[in-house]
């Protein structure tokens, strides 16, 4: 432990080595945060099963201090988006994300969460969770093996290690506003896009009025 934390600029007298460590606030802060990331106990689809498999004896996520899975978003640091994100589910996911306290991280596990995956063309499928919430780590695979998931989580730990208190967004004076929750319309609607939706629907109407194109139905 002390090796990991010690800052090399300071020499510790030989008789005290192994007992004290001189370090920076950033380092010890990040070290403790990344060694106790609590994921949300939240499974969406197939990937969730591999997530559970990662928690069991063969792979043992507890080695990384991540075995404490909490069903409540208010007690978690990590949103593991494990599976296909559908339009019907996205309002819940955005809401869960908003309810998580800072510092929070998002891992997109598997092809679906990263970009829609095999179901991308589906009418009820969101092509990537990053359309709505920011993602820290993407893990490819369908589903990713537990080893791949562990690699993704180690990558997240490395990312946490590089953060510094000076620029951390959760200590900003103007903390980030909550992400607006999408609304069920004729299709899913992101409140940030309302202007564009209105504009485009008007253009579509104009086009239909000007050129009354016959509805060609393909058999």
């Amino acid at each position: 432990m002390s090796d990991e934390l010690n800052s090399p600029q300071y020499d510790v007298p030989p008789e005290m080595q192994g007992q004290i460590a001189i370090t920076t606030l950033d380092k010890i802060y990040n070290w403790s945060r990344r060694s106790s990331v609590w994921p949300m106990f939240f499974g969406l689809a197939c990937c969730a099963i591999e997530m559970i498999a990662t928690a069991t004896s063969r792979f043992d996520i507890a080695r990384f201090g991540m075995e404490v899975m909490r069903p409540s978003p208010r007690q978690t640091d990590l949103l593991l988006v494990s599976g296909t994100v559908t339009k019907k589910m996205i309002p819940q996911i955005v809401r869960l994300y908003n309810q998580m306290p800072e510092p929070k991280y998002v891992v997109a596990m598997g092809a679906c969460a990263s970009g829609g995956g095999p179901f991308k063309e589906g009418y009820n499928v969101v092509s990537g969770i990053d359309n709505y919430i920011p993602v820290d780590v993407y893990i490819p695979g369908c589903p990713p093996t537990p080893q791949a998931l562990l690699h993704g989580l180690i990558t997240l730990q490395k990312k946490i290690d590089k953060q510094t208190l000076k620029t951390a967004r959760w200590y900003d004076k103007e903390s980030e506003a909550a992400i607006p929750v999408p609304v069920f319309g004729p299709d899913i609607m992101d409140p940030r896009d309302y202007e564009a939706i209105k504009l485009h629907a008007q253009e579509k109407l104009q086009a239909e009025l000007n050129i009354p194109s016959p509805e060609v139905e393909q058999g």
Binding site: V126, S127, G185, A196, K198, Q202
Partner: peptide, 23 residues
């Protein structure tokens, strides 16, 4: 990519003349 052909660059489409503010 499919996104490039969609006016919203997302997997969505809305009926003509639709107004989200009055929905």
């Amino acid at each position: 990519r499919a996104e490039d052909k969609n006016p919203f660059h997302k997997n969505v489409s809305y009926p003509a003349g639709f107004n989200p503010e009055t929905w």
